[in-house]
Amino acid sequence: MTSLFDPIQAGDLHLANRIAMAPLTRNRSPQAVPRNITATYYAQRASAGLLITEGTAISAQGQGYSDVPGLYGSDQLDGWKKVTQAVHARGGKIVTQLWHVGRVSHSLLQPGRAAPVAPSAVQANAKTYVVDPETGRGEFMHTCTPRALTAEELPDIVHTYAAAARNAVRSAGFDGVEIHGANGYLLDQFLKDGANRRTDDYGGGIARRARLMLEVTRAVADAIGGGRVGLRLSPVTPANDIHDSNPQPLFEHLARQLAPLSLAYIHVIEGATGGPREVEGRPFDYAAFKAAYRDAGGRGAWMVNNGYDRDMALQAVASGHADMVAFGRAFISNPDLVERLRRNAPLNEWDRPTFYGGGEKGYIDYPAMAD
């Protein structure tokens, strides 16, 4: 029987166990540059089979929160190179999450204080974290009304994703990338009819709404090889005011189109991100979603996420429901989470006020178990 602690081959990634650290925004990268404490933070958690970094902006336009890292400048790539070297020195594997937030942004964070961009000019009923440049204080502010991207702009968006992936692997030393296609950000906005009101080739029916996500995924796979690429999806989460009127056929179509790309893994958020695993009024058959991918020839590892504890994770892998399980907040306060899960040891409590912004406190000062 397969165990959570067994190694796994996910595409080109040979992983020591089936536990992943989920992407966790921490807002500790001023000027979008990872700092030395970022290298310490990830290296402390390198016993995970796979580390997935916090969402990392593919461009200045793609930024939606203050002090999140990027992949589009040399200082940013140099900062990330220190991170990957520190993780590799501990024997870990690390991929970065490619992020364009789309409408989940504020004009204060956009180049020239422009409006954020989106598939349609539909404002998200959501908030984003903005640091006042005068006071240095951060607060959550309502997102701004976006402008709709033109069809002529979309090839450049695709190109920017691919360029960020190349930068990540070739310049920063990442083992691969995860495309952020979840939680109401740009690709998810195009995918779901709650945010996509377009009438061109990127809006309307299922195939058209899925087009940008598939174009981006193919371009990234072409750039660095599909075996180094993961994709994160969230079929029914209401995060950032996103929804779709009929997600089951939408995601099964997407699964069938993704199958031939030989991706390393598919990362599925089950339920509401960081919330209940069953979303009222939004039923979804995750087994059918996975079956659509497998039946179409998809062989990437199937990673699940959201609210998993030790017993649930062990059962998910042993039963074949999943190949891997990603843990989020538990990794914040438990740098040695893998060993704690292996021993069934108690977990440290996290300090919620230190989640976003700040320095070492609540970031690199959580204790590991005594040997």
Rank of each mutant, 00 (worst) to 15 (best):
D285A: 09
N344D: 15
F174H: 07
A345R: 10
E153M: 08
P133S: 13
A182F: 03
P133Y: 09
C144S: 11
Y202E: 03
G136H: 04
G362M: 09
N344S: 13
Y129Q: 09
G226M: 15
H243T: 02
F190R: 03
Y356I: 01
N183S: 03
G64I: 01
P235S: 08
S66A: 01
Q31S: 11
D323Q: 04
L50Q: 03
T128G: 01
L212G: 11
I206T: 12
W302I: 11
D336G: 13
T128C: 07
E54H: 12
R299P: 08
G62K: 08
G181P: 00
V220C: 15
G297Q: 04
S66P: 14
D351L: 10
P249H: 14
H106F: 03
R352K: 14
A330N: 01
M303Q: 00
A162E: 00
A162Q: 01
P23K: 00
I179Y: 00
P260Q: 08
S47F: 05
G64A: 02
D201N: 14
Y356T: 05
H142N: 15
R209G: 08
I224V: 14
E252F: 12
R35P: 04
Y41C: 12
A368L: 15
G230D: 03
L231G: 03
F284S: 13
W80G: 02
A182P: 09
R277C: 02
V169P: 03
L109D: 00
G359Y: 14
G204C: 12
Q31M: 14
Y129S: 05
I206N: 15
L337W: 06
R342M: 06
D371G: 15
S319N: 06
L71V: 08
L341K: 00
Y129K: 00
R329K: 05
G271D: 06
H88F: 04
W80Y: 10
M213Q: 11
G73P: 09
P238M: 14
